[in-house]
Design a protein around this nucleic acid. Sequence first.
DNA 1: TAAATGTTTGAATAATTGTTCATATTTGCA
DNA 2: TGCAAATATGAACAATTATTCAAACATTTA
Lengths: 111, 111
Amino acid sequence: MSCQEIEKVSLVKAKMKSDQCFQDLSETFKALSDPTRTKIIYALYLEEELCVGDIAAIIGTSDSVISHQLRTLRNMKLVRYHKAGKVAFYSLDDVHINNLFAEGLRHVEEM
Amino acid sequence: MSCQEIEKVSLVKAKMKSDQCFQDLSETFKALSDPTRTKIIYALYLEEELCVGDIAAIIGTSDSVISHQLRTLRNMKLVRYHKAGKVAFYSLDDVHINNLFAEGLRHVEEM
DNA sequence: TAAATGTTTGAATAATTGTTCATATTTGCA
DNA sequence: TGCAAATATGAACAATTATTCAAACATTTA
């Protein structure tokens, strides 16, 4: 275990967050780390509310893929949904996700 | 292929970004989707510049783990480095990453 | 030159994950 | 009741990935 600047190390070490915090943080980012999921989020970012079949039609994949990924996004609390008859309408869960996504989009578009 | 609201679908479809865009977007988020990497980024977010051994000491893992992940972060253009003798000093590459990370941190801390 | 230090690299392993395909579930309608 | 539509689910497969360990590389110093 090498160490160049022991003061720097203990300073940063003292300010470190909990493992749980980094776990949550990385999981939030992980939710947006798949192209299919970013497409879904972007679609819901443009249109308040969409059902599974419509998202599949927009993105051009099977309903099954979308349903699986929506479940992931639901578990990660990025989207919520309500059912009307046999149709399930999904929307973004929370404003922070909106900001986070927009920030990522800005970053990519300035690349 | 079911479709509830064909106008919505074509509207969103027309505004869709390129596959490349979503690829880049998801890869940016993927860079931050691992706890070890978020720890590294957070350390460099607190301290402008750190060397491999010091990051390892801060996080409490082997130099090898840090070096591997720093390579990933380097490939993804999130960090840059310069060598002084045998010591390699790393820092965050770009301001957008700073914003993106801060936004994620804000989100997690309000959970 | 030889030893020590800081970092990198490669192979191997275990674990996670996205998609596919088939099947189930639920609701609406004939 | 029976059938179609919308969504969800589970198992299986291939692909990716984080970590470990050992070894290599480069640089400094004795």
